[in-house]
């Protein structure tokens, strides 16, 4: 068994285990941490697929930005009361997930490979055998894949700028990011007191209450003032 197969096995077990723990653990912060472990495993798989740039991008964006955003959002909405009970709709959710998985599998299955070949090939893999007559590799070590692998990031960069390939999509994704930022800022804006109808009526009631209190306070003051001071204030008013 090759080293890469062992590494792949370890990464798979880590990924599936961490993903299972994310949905079953009761502590939300731990769930976020298990999610981060699963992101690390995915980055490892990108490395096995000879896509080093995407492994580092996974670390940078998912673990460095999105996980932190996730944790901040959890803290913002739940505080530190992070113990949550298990979802009571787990059964229905399980059935729906299985249906969605079946639909996706039917539509996304790569055409030339049949399901039983993959399963049988997988077992053969575990025993260190071959697949389709040649030793199985993640990315075959021949001439055409070598050229792609060595230049992949460069070609991606050139394609990102080229309007004929991905340039328009680049601008679109920039616009999408902009829209996301603007939307979030709008949603999180500070509202003035009387922004909604209920708030407005409440604000009016508050104002009336305050006016009433003020008039009461003035009346008390006027009654409590000694005559001299009252005369002085009357004089001051002239």
């Amino acid at each position: 068994m090759e080293v890469s197969q062992i590494v792949f096995l370890i990464l798979t077990v880590t990924l599936l285990g961490a993903a299972a723990l994310v949905v079953t653990t009761k502590n939300l912060f731990h769930a976020a941490l298990y999610l981060i472990v699963s992101f690390f495993s995915v980055a490892g798989m990108y490395v096995l697929l000879e896509a080093g740039f995407f492994a580092a991008a996974q670390l940078l964006v998912y673990i460095g930005a999105i996980s932190i955003l996730f944790i901040f959002a959890v803290m913002l909405t739940r505080g530190t009361a992070l113990i949550t009970p298990l979802n009571s709709q787990a059964g229905a959710v399980g059935v729906m997930s299985a249906i969605m998985f079946a639909i996706l599998a039917v539509f996304l299955w790569p055409a030339p490979i049949r399901l039983q070949e993959v399963i049988l090939g997988g077992f053969r893999l575990l025993r260190g055998g071959t697949y389709g007559g040649e030793p199985w590799q993640f990315v075959p070590n021949n001439a055409d894949t070598a050229a792609v692998v060595n230049n992949a990031t460069l070609r991606l960069g050139a394609a990102l700028g080229d309007f004929a390939q991905y340039g328009a999509l680049l601008l679109l994704s920039g616009a999408l990011l902009l829209v996301g930022v603007i939307g979030s800022i709008w949603v999180a804006r500070e509202r003035k007191i009387a922004d909604t109808r209920a708030d407005r009526s409440e604000a009016a009631a508050d104002a009336r209450h305050e006016a009433q209190l003020e008039s009461e306070a003035e009346a008390r003051e006027a009654a409590a003032l000694p005559a001299g001071a009252h005369a002085a204030s009357v004089e001051g008013q002239h």
Binding site: F53, L60, L154, L160, L178, V181
Partner: peptide
């Protein structure tokens, strides 16, 4: 949260700019 959001904007932007910087010379 809002600071982290602006950071995500520039993070993803940077990740998209890096491959272009690689290919800059021949473009």
């Amino acid at each position: 949260y809002l600071f982290a959001l602006i950071f995500v904007l520039f993070d993803v932007g940077g990740v998209l700019l890096f491959p272009f910087a690689l290919a800059y010379n021949g473009v």
